[in-house]
Simulated assay, not measured.
Amino acid sequence: MTTASSKNRYARFIPSEEVGDVTQWRFGAVGSSHAQLPELEATTEAETEADAAARMAQEALEQAALQQASDDAYALGLQKGREQATAEWQRRMDEYVAGEGLEAARRLDAAVQALSASLDAMQQHMAQDVLQLACDIARQVVRQELRSNTDALRPVVGEALGMLVADGKPATVRLSPTDHVAVAAALREEFSASPVQWLVDAAVPPGGCQVEAAGAVVDGSLDKRWQRAIAPLGLASAWSSAGDGDGI
Rank of each mutant, 00 (worst) to 15 (best):
A52E: 14
G243A: 15
A75K: 11
I137S: 09
V112A: 00
T2V: 08
E47H: 09
Q84R: 04
E95S: 06
L78D: 03
A138S: 13
G81I: 00
A4Y: 06
H180V: 10
E49Y: 13
D244W: 07
L76W: 06
D219N: 15
D244L: 09
N8M: 13
D120Y: 05
S148Y: 06
E100D: 04
L78I: 02
V112D: 00
G28P: 12
E212C: 05
R143C: 10
E45H: 11
Q58A: 15
E159R: 13
A238I: 05
I14V: 12
L233V: 01
S237D: 09
L222F: 09
E45V: 11
V22L: 09
G31F: 08
L133R: 12
M126L: 15
V142N: 02
D167T: 06
D223L: 10
G101N: 03
T178A: 15
R26P: 02
S6V: 04
G20Q: 03
Y74H: 10
S176G: 12
Q36C: 01
A54L: 14
R92C: 01
M56S: 15
A138L: 14
L161C: 07
A229F: 14
G215S: 01
K7I: 15
S237T: 11
Q36G: 01
A117L: 08
D94M: 05
R225T: 10
R147T: 04
A186R: 07
V196Q: 05
E159S: 07
V19T: 05
E83R: 06
V196D: 04
R92T: 00
E189L: 07
D21C: 01
P232A: 01
Q128M: 13
W239E: 04
E49S: 11
G77Y: 02
L199F: 02
M122Y: 10
A75M: 06
V217S: 07
S32I: 03
Y96E: 00
M56I: 15
Q79G: 04
A46N: 08
P38E: 11
Q140E: 12
S176P: 10
D72F: 09
A50S: 14
P155D: 07
E83H: 02
V196L: 06
G207D: 01
L102E: 04
R139C: 09
V173T: 04
A242Q: 15
Q227W: 02
A166R: 07
D244N: 08
L76T: 06
E83P: 00
A29W: 07
F13N: 08
G77Q: 08
M126T: 14
L161H: 00
V211L: 01
P15E: 12
L222Q: 14
P170T: 02
E159G: 03
A138N: 12
A104W: 02
S237Y: 11
M122A: 15
R188V: 02
H34C: 05
A134F: 08
A203F: 03
R106P: 00
G220I: 11
E88D: 02
Q79T: 03
A11I: 12
A52L: 14
L40I: 14
A242K: 15
Q24K: 09
A236L: 09
Q63F: 11
